[in-house]
Nucleic acid binder design. Structure first.
Lengths: 225, 225
DNA sequence: ATAGAGCGTCACAGATATTTCATAAATAAC
DNA sequence: GTTATTTATGAAATATCTGTGACGCTCTAT
């Protein structure tokens, strides 16, 4: 099983190292960025980053700016680090969609505990890695899918696509959005390739295929009635 | 739309009242319990409680015990209130599956912000992507429209057009303006096509079609009497 | 080397939406 | 009231989009 990836962004390498050490001890995989721009680069390039730890004070793009940018396209959990225990800052953060807020200096134990809690909550942790809806069960850890209890074989892309649909139940997804998430964000190909995968997916999940609805002129939507 | 229910548990009624006041102001529905047992009673009896706010120090069952009990059967978000800024307590809490941890004395603003953040995270709050007027509800996220609760099917253009109308309620819109916004800026066709779309829209939304008013010699206006 | 799976592309048919057009109805101006 | 202009309507003509099967490319296991 792959390790859970955490991106730590801080301009002080000493601080990054400190955080990294504690996280690595808990068996996370830690990526580092020294400023906001680098953070965005890594975030978009690297797939499956489970959590961001962002320092507020940084050159180029500060923590809030990175947060805002990321939130345009992703719901990845974000923990903010800030030097002051300033209440206003904290409020700004929650508005932007920050999940946690830890003020320096912090105890590493607290950091680790919060990281654990937040990952547990977002279902990205070893155990609770199951997505289930309308009789479709996706076990991300085992990389298996069952429909009404019967296991079905999906290719890698099909698996990713179905997962993306389940994660966004009830939300209309444009082809572009799907491409950006299931394929690489800089994928430069025919959007119609999605159609083909949707077709196969629908065929493989049988009657549940109806849950994948076509929104004419727009894209698709997964919806369980 | 029903209000979001929050259960506040604290043995000090003064504290409950304080918390309640701030939450009610944010339009949540607040239930109260004065001790752990009462909390469990209410939690199991009442349905759809979206969030628990638990004081740690309470008679009968304390906050940790209530939390453990609840976690046997539910993943409802839990915020813990504790008097001391004790780190050990906080760590205990995260292990038990506490979602947030606020130490007294706290600023009500922070409380409200965290409640908002946690509910947003758990997807219990309807995102602000809903336009509603005079019984017409447009959910941009799901790309659906309901009229008096009944869902209706709209084509892409119809959807865009209706959205544009709702966004500009009470404002007279020239055909040119409509073309520029709903169609492309460089659309190179007959403005009469709007008439056709308006006709269809009116037909599809039934009696509410009267809200789309014709302004003779000028264009249209969406207005709820 | 070969067969097979996965993936992306393409073309075509069928489905659906959009636009245009002719005509009827409504409104304003005189 | 009559005329000129504007809008509503239904139907027909276009345009656009999606579903589908086929094909080729790449990678992997044999």
């Amino acid at each position: 099983m792959e390790k859970i990836k955490i991106l730590v962004v801080d301009d002080e390498s000493r601080m990054r190292k400190l955080v990294r050490d504690f996280l690595v001890r808990e068996d996370y995989e830690v990526l580092e960025a020294g400023d906001g721009e680098a953070a965005l680069d890594i975030f978009y390039k690297e797939k499956n980053i489970a959590l961001l730890i962002l320092d507020v004070m940084m050159p180029k793009l500060n923590g809030w700016e990175v947060c805002r940018e990321i939130r345009e396209t992703s719901k990845v959990p974000i923990i903010m680090l800030t030097a002051k225990g300033d209440e206003e800052d904290e409020l700004t953060g929650f508005d932007l969609g920050v999940d946690e807020y830890i003020s320096k200096p912090f105890s590493p134990k607290i950091l680790v505990a919060r990281v654990g809690a937040i990952l547990r909550r977002s279902g990205k942790t070893e155990e609770g890695n199951i997505l289930s809806m309308g009789g479709i069960v996706i076990d991300r850890t085992a990389h298996t899918v069952t429909v009404d209890g019967r296991q079905i074989d999906l290719s890698f892309k099909e698996f990713e696509l179905l997962t993306y649909f389940l994660e966004n139940e009830g939300i209309a997804l444009s082809r572009e959005k799907i491409l950006n998430h299931v394929w690489n964000y800089d994928y430069f190909g025919d959007a119609r390739t999605i159609d083909t995968h949707v077709k196969k997916l629908r065929a493989k999940i049988g009657e549940k295929g109806e849950y994948i609805k076509t929104i004419w002129g727009m894209g698709y939507k997964f919806e369980v009635e």
